[in-house]
Write a protein that binds this DNA or RNA. Structure first.
Lengths: 238, 238
DNA sequence: CGTCTGGTTGATCTAGATCAACAGGAGTGG
DNA sequence: CCACTCCTGTTGATCTAGATCAACCAGACG
């Protein structure tokens, strides 16, 4: 854990507007600034471990974090990716439980740690924050269920397409003229885990998609050759 | 929708202690009593539909409710069972979204409907309720994720055993001397849907479990012949 | 009675897992 | 600099759990 502190004000944090914290007053932000611990994390580092007690929450200032869960056999599943602005580790804190999953840095990141006590104090003073986290957890719940239903009814090819479009939303670029593209921020293995299949299946699915001229892969770069057809396939389904 | 009103006071509701509403004052309970609509529902009736706007929440006084989700193909998945004391339909209301699933009566039930306005008023006055629903949604989220991970890593047999033990928790009876047993409250088809397999697979899994002398099925009644071995199997896994 | 629904069993099929080999980097160390 | 081992990703061959298709039985119900 490399602790270079590029101490900066929450008030000026480029992601603040999109976070659960955007309702805080300047005073409250100052409070956080005073006690937060900013750190500089490298891929592979673990922010908190499954089974640990919650010590606070972690706000992603920049970078990328993966939420993974270990099953009884020790195999891990990548449940979701968390982007700048997102606060992770809030569930164990608010639900008063141990962490049911663990968080791993996937790209060089700046992470702000906010101690448990600070969070609970803020929550007590400002119930709107609780409300925001409620809404957040409801959204995650819907996503988790959709995910479950999708993995029951769709085949690998369709789930992969769906996943690519979700990633495109977050990391995509380009337009109708220049063409759409996407730099996938994670490895094939993680991509596989995210849609609950083996890396081999991902590889094959990619080959097939390329044969059908829907996409073109160059390592982690994806060019969408026929985005219309992709939408058709994940919309109409079958 | 059969509207026989066995009007009774929330204060005396046998399930109130376990609900999100158990922090309400008598005044607040009176308010609900005044406006709630109690109804008597039969299996097959739908409480709310997927895609509908939220009109309020539904508190299960007695009976059994199933939460189902339709996928793009129109196939439905049974996501969870809701028991007396549970409030359903809260997610669309609190998340300000349409219902992402629908709720179906699975056993004759008494359902109390509480209008949206009443709920939001209570929430505004008493932030503890919001907190309770936050905790509830966090718990459901953890369950959903565990479910997802289980259905990725465990085979049908083990998932069925796991599911039976969860049902046993809620509907089981018996003790070490007389033996443990369980009356499954749902059909084989729903049991199958709950663990994301076909009814045929459930049937076969049951046969195998009986061959191995772990359980004995008589219709919807299950006798656990060797509960130790069952715990072993879902604990150690593989 | 016939018709329906719910459940079981058998035969077959297939998507995806598993096992195995290999190819390109990227470090590491002599 | 080469030789080495890792590590990620791709491809091929094979295997299998569970889906699918089909037949059948038993109880419920008009």
């Amino acid at each position: 854990m490399n602790n270079t502190p590029p101490q900066s004000k929450c008030l000026n944090c480029p992601t603040r507007e999109n976070t659960e914290w955007n309702t805080l007053s300047e005073d409250e932000l100052d409070l956080i600034d005073q006690f937060k611990r900013v750190s500089d994390r490298e891929p592979g580092e673990i922010i908190y471990h499954q089974g640990d007690q919650s010590e606070g929450v972690y706000c992603i200032q920049s970078g990328l974090v993966g939420i993974r869960q270990l099953d009884a056999d020790g195999k891990e599943t990548l449940l979701r990716l968390c982007n700048p602005g997102e606060t992770v580790g809030y569930r164990a804190l608010l639900g008063n439980s141990e962490h049911t999953h663990f968080a791993e840095i996937l790209a060089p990141s700046h992470i702000c740690f906010i101690e448990r006590k600070i969070v609970t104090d803020l929550l007590a003073k400002n119930p709107v924050i609780g409300e925001r986290f409620l809404v957040r957890s409801l959204k995650e719940l819907t996503e988790a269920e959709d995910n479950l239903v999708r993995s029951r009814s769709l085949k690998v090819r369709t789930r992969l397409l769906h996943c690519l479009m979700v990633l495109f939303d977050q990391y995509g670029s380009g337009d109708e003229l220049s063409g759409y593209m996407l730099k996938i921020p994670i490895s094939r293995k993680d991509l596989a885990s995210l849609i609950a299949v083996t890396p081999e299946s991902i590889s094959r699915a990619i080959s097939h998609l390329e044969e059908d001229n829907l996409v073109r892969f160059e390592g982690r770069n994806v060019h969408f050759s026929n985005i219309e057809a992709i939408f058709d396939e994940i919309g109409a389904v079958h």
